[in-house]
Simulated assay, not measured.
Amino acid sequence: MSTPTGFDELIHPATRLSVVALLAATEWADFPFIRDSLSLSDSALSKQLHTLEEAGYLEIRKEGGGRRRRTKVRLTDRGRTAFEGHVAALRAIVEDAPTATPAATAPAEDTTTPAPATAAEVTR
């Protein structure tokens, strides 16, 4: 099976895909909001943001100074296009997957009468 057009290896890892999906739903997001929403550490999120920024998928803006410094993040047009293409590629993969044939079902177990207790269960 060939990889569908639009599949993006950079976005595909779960953490980056989660970051990009979160950002796709908003114009700008604060670093703490992204971190807390995805249950990531500061360093793990910083690493992912840096990777996506280097690819031109994100814009990172630092505002304020000192203790009031805030980091805001947004998807660039390039990042939004890459995300939309990746989602379309994932949908194509799922839609093209062969449909599973239902397996033969085993007879249902009789659950009306409880099984007798073993010696080990009685001594507990």
Rank of each mutant, 00 (worst) to 15 (best):
R16E: 04
E121C: 06
T105W: 09
R78G: 01
S43T: 15
E95H: 13
A88R: 05
F7I: 08
T112P: 04
T101L: 09
A92E: 10
R78T: 10
L17S: 07
L52D: 00
A97E: 12
V122F: 10
A120T: 15
E84F: 04
D42K: 10
K62W: 14
R80H: 00
D110A: 06
R78N: 07
R80K: 08
T118D: 03
V122A: 14
E27Q: 12
R78K: 13
T105S: 12
A103E: 11
E109Q: 12
T101D: 09
R80D: 01
D42R: 04
T105E: 14
R16V: 03
D36A: 06
P114L: 05
V94K: 10
A89C: 03
A104K: 09
T51D: 15
P116Y: 05
T3G: 10
F7Q: 01
S41P: 10
R80F: 01
T101K: 14
R80I: 01
D8E: 13
V94L: 10
V20Y: 01
L10I: 14
P102H: 06
G6S: 12
T81N: 07
E54R: 15
E53M: 14
A120G: 11
K72A: 02
R67T: 13
W28K: 00
P107R: 12
L10R: 06
A89D: 05
T26K: 04
V87A: 01
R35T: 06
A119W: 11
A120M: 12
R74H: 04
K62R: 15
D36S: 11
I34N: 02
S37D: 05
T123H: 08
L17I: 06
E54S: 15
E84M: 08
D42P: 00
P102L: 04
G85N: 07
A24K: 00
E59S: 14
A100N: 09
I60E: 09
R61G: 06
M1Q: 11
F31L: 05
A108M: 12
E9C: 05
S2R: 14
Y57K: 03
T5D: 13
A120D: 15
E27M: 08
H86F: 05
L52F: 09
I60F: 02
R124M: 12
E9W: 09
F33I: 08
